[in-house]
Deep mutational scan, measured.
Amino acid sequence: EEKRQVKQVAKEKLLEQSPNSKVQVRRVQKQGNTIRVELELRTNGKKENYTVEVERQGNTWTVKRITRT
């Protein structure tokens, strides 16, 4: 359940930055209360990979860091 929520948060964050792209989740890793989500962003056939680190704060998820990989 929490992985599902985190995927959603990570996707939304990337789509905010580039709204007309397609996002696909590649991998989800958990480390303590930080969850790392690896995503693939496609814009006009151009692929970019991103890693989004999401942290739990109380009962909400906040995006800590977005890295292009």
Rank of each mutant, 00 (worst) to 15 (best):
E1C: 08
E1K: 08
E1P: 03
E1Q: 08
E1W: 06
E2C: 09
E2L: 12
E2T: 08
E2M: 12
E2A: 07
K3C: 15
K3M: 15
K3A: 15
K3L: 15
R4L: 09
R4I: 02
R4Y: 10
R4Q: 10
Q5W: 09
Q5V: 09
Q5E: 10
Q5N: 06
Q5Y: 10
V6R: 00
V6P: 05
V6S: 05
V6E: 02
V6A: 15
V6M: 03
V6T: 02
V6Y: 05
V6C: 05
V6Q: 03
K7P: 03
K7G: 15
K7N: 05
K7W: 15
K7R: 09
Q8H: 07
Q8G: 04
Q8K: 14
Q8V: 05
Q8I: 08
V9Q: 05
V9N: 01
V9S: 02
V9A: 07
V9M: 10
A10V: 10
A10E: 01
A10L: 07
K11R: 07
K11A: 12
K11H: 03
K11P: 01
K11Q: 06
E12K: 08
E12S: 05
E12N: 12
E12D: 14
E12T: 07
E12V: 03
E12F: 03
E12Y: 04
K13R: 06
K13G: 07
K13P: 02
K13D: 01
L14I: 10
L14K: 00
L14M: 13
L14C: 04
L14Q: 01
L14R: 01
L15S: 03
L15P: 00
L15D: 02
L15T: 02
L15E: 04
L15C: 03
E16I: 04
E16F: 03
E16N: 04
E16W: 02
E16V: 03
E16T: 07
E16K: 04
Q17E: 04
Q17H: 09
Q17S: 05
Q17R: 09
Q17L: 15
Q17D: 06
Q17A: 07
S18N: 15
S18M: 14
S18I: 10
S18C: 12
S18K: 10
P19H: 04
P19V: 02
P19N: 02
P19Q: 02
P19C: 02
P19S: 02
N20D: 10
N20P: 02
N20E: 08
N20H: 07
N20C: 05
N20M: 06
S21P: 02
S21G: 13
S21D: 02
S21R: 01
K22D: 13
K22Q: 13
K22C: 05
K22R: 08
K22I: 11
V23A: 10
V23M: 03
V23R: 00
V23N: 00
V23S: 02
V23K: 00
V23Y: 01
V23I: 07
Q24V: 12
Q24A: 13
Q24T: 14
Q24R: 15
V25N: 02
V25R: 01
V25H: 02
V25A: 04
V25T: 04
R26Y: 08
R26I: 14
R26H: 07
R26K: 13
R27E: 06
R27M: 07
V28R: 00
V28L: 13
V28G: 01
V28M: 14
V28C: 08
V28D: 01
Q29S: 13
Q29Y: 12
Q29I: 15
K30Y: 15
K30C: 08
Q31G: 06
Q31K: 09
Q31L: 14
Q31S: 10
Q31C: 09
G32L: 05
G32Y: 05
G32S: 05
N33P: 10
N33Y: 05
N33R: 12
N33F: 10
T34W: 05
T34K: 06
T34F: 09
T34L: 10
I35L: 07
I35H: 15
I35F: 15
I35V: 13
I35P: 00
I35N: 04
R36N: 13
R36L: 15
R36W: 13
V37P: 00
E38H: 14
E38T: 13
E38S: 13
E38P: 00
L39A: 12
L39K: 00
L39D: 00
L39P: 00
E40A: 09
E40L: 11
E40K: 05
E40Y: 11
E40T: 13
E40W: 09
L41Q: 05
L41F: 02
L41N: 01
L41C: 07
L41M: 09
R42Q: 07
T43C: 04
T43M: 06
N44M: 07
N44D: 12
N44I: 07
N44A: 13
N44Q: 12
N44W: 08
N44E: 13
N44C: 06
G45Q: 11
G45P: 02
G45D: 09
G45E: 10
G45V: 05
G45F: 13
K46W: 11
K46V: 10
K46I: 13
K46D: 09
K46T: 11
K47H: 09
K47T: 11
E48L: 04
E48R: 04
E48G: 03
N49W: 13
N49Y: 14
N49K: 10
N49V: 10
N49Q: 10
Y50H: 03
Y50K: 01
T51E: 15
T51S: 13
T51F: 09
T51D: 07
T51I: 14
T51H: 06
V52L: 05
E53L: 13
E53R: 03
E53F: 09
E53H: 08
E53K: 03
E53G: 02
E53T: 08
V54F: 10
V54G: 01
V54C: 06
V54Q: 00
V54E: 01
V54A: 03
E55L: 06
E55N: 05
E55W: 08
E55P: 00
E55F: 06
E55K: 05
E55S: 10
E55G: 07
E55C: 06
E55T: 08
R56D: 03
R56C: 07
Q57C: 07
Q57A: 11
Q57R: 07
Q57L: 11
Q57H: 10
Q57T: 12
Q57M: 11
Q57P: 03
Q57G: 05
Q57N: 10
G58D: 12
G58K: 07
G58P: 03
G58L: 09
G58E: 13
N59G: 13
N59D: 13
N59C: 04
N59E: 13
N59M: 14
T60F: 11
T60A: 09
T60K: 08
T60S: 13
W61N: 01
W61Q: 02
T62R: 07
T62S: 13
T62C: 06
V63Y: 01
V63Q: 00
V63H: 00
V63M: 02
K64C: 11
K64N: 10
R65G: 14
R65C: 07
R65H: 11
R65I: 06
R65F: 03
R65E: 13
R65N: 12
I66N: 01
I66G: 01
I66F: 04
I66M: 08
I66Y: 03
T67K: 07
T67W: 13
T67S: 11
T67M: 10
T67F: 11
T67N: 08
R68Y: 06
R68P: 11
R68M: 14
T69N: 13
T69S: 09
T69G: 12
T69D: 11
T69K: 07
T69I: 13
